[in-house]
Amino acid sequence: MSIVVQLLLAMCLDAVAGEPKWIWQRVPHPAVLMGRIVGHLDAALNRTIARRAAGVLALIMMVYGAAAIGWLVSQFGAVVTILVAAILLAQRSLVEHVQAVADGLRLSDDAGREAVRMIVSRDVSDAPPDAIARAGLESLAENFGDGVIAPAFWFLIGGLPGLMVYKMVNTADSMIGYRTPRHEAFGWAAARFDDLLNWIPARLTALLLASVGGWPSWRRIKADAALHRSPNAGWPEAAMAHALNFALAGPRSYHGTVTPFAWVNADGKHDLGPADIDAGIRLVWKAWGAAAALLIMIGGLIWLT
């Protein structure tokens, strides 16, 4: 079975089944295990001296370990490979978490805040409804890139070892890739490698969102993506903002301090609500369908040749 067919089946399985809670209530999810590995390496290697070198060593250990585990699991055959790949994709769970924000806002502002706290790190304790909706949409766009398209891309490039390496590095970046006194040096290598692994997938995600969103100006998407503090996350956010004509990003609060981030598509709609989250979810499903269609085309060309 070709790698393209395996990926397509994994994407469909993830889209249909998502994350069955009855399984992960009994055994730890692979992403949880990856997080534990990162935590152990942080505790063991992140000392007061040579932190950057220790971070590079930790990254090498994570990459080689993830690749080896991916290769070993893939030896059990295509069915096991498809199941593991589906577990490590996140389309269904992403949509469900963001839909919970829209459903919460329809009940009350507090319910919306409680739901969005599950998916963002910013302070939303006093956020108005439009800021809650905006946070949900930004999370939707960014995580569609690094939770669906990027792992699918690296599975297509490197099979299960490629997917495992990407997920391990992405997990490390989410845990230690911050400019804090403890992690600025130790997490530097993981953060930079995560940027590298996401460079192509982020732009591919933007292209998919734009292709199903009426083909907004790529020049404007590129310009707004450059406003983001991340070299990659701004691309899917900018593409969604322009495809739906929403204003995203803007000032937000972290740990009680308001950070004046620039607006993405500043002329777009600012007064966002649950119906706009629904529109974002529909756009992401369309982009997922475009990615699946692209895989079918690639598989067909391979079969013909």
Rank of each mutant, 00 (worst) to 15 (best):
A102N: 01
G213C: 08
K222D: 10
L72W: 12
D126I: 15
L283G: 03
G65I: 08
D14C: 04
I49L: 11
D130Q: 07
G214N: 08
I277V: 13
D173M: 12
P28C: 15
I302H: 09
D130T: 05
V165P: 07
G280Y: 03
W24C: 10
S139E: 09
E138Y: 03
N265G: 02
T305Y: 14
A127G: 02
I87R: 00
A141Y: 02
A111Q: 15
L196K: 01
V101F: 03
G177M: 12
M175L: 11
A275R: 15
A226L: 09
A262N: 11
I277T: 04
W199Q: 14
G299Q: 02
A90I: 03
G65V: 07
P274R: 06
A10V: 01
I302T: 09
N46W: 05
R51G: 02
G35W: 01
V258D: 15
L301A: 15
P128W: 06
A292Y: 06
V165H: 08
V169E: 08
K167D: 01
N245F: 08
D267Y: 11
Q6K: 15
G250E: 03
A185Q: 12
H29P: 07
D14G: 03
A44L: 14
S211R: 12
P20H: 05
S217H: 07
L45I: 07
L13E: 00
Q6L: 13
P201H: 07
I149H: 10
L197Y: 11
R220C: 05
I60H: 06
L209T: 00
R182C: 00
R113Y: 10
P128Y: 08
R117S: 07
A266N: 07
L160W: 10
V264M: 13
G299T: 04
Q25D: 09
D278R: 06
W188D: 07
D271K: 10
A249V: 04
S230T: 08
A141C: 06
A152R: 14
V79Q: 12
T180N: 10
A189R: 04
F246Y: 07
R203Y: 02
R182D: 01
D123R: 01
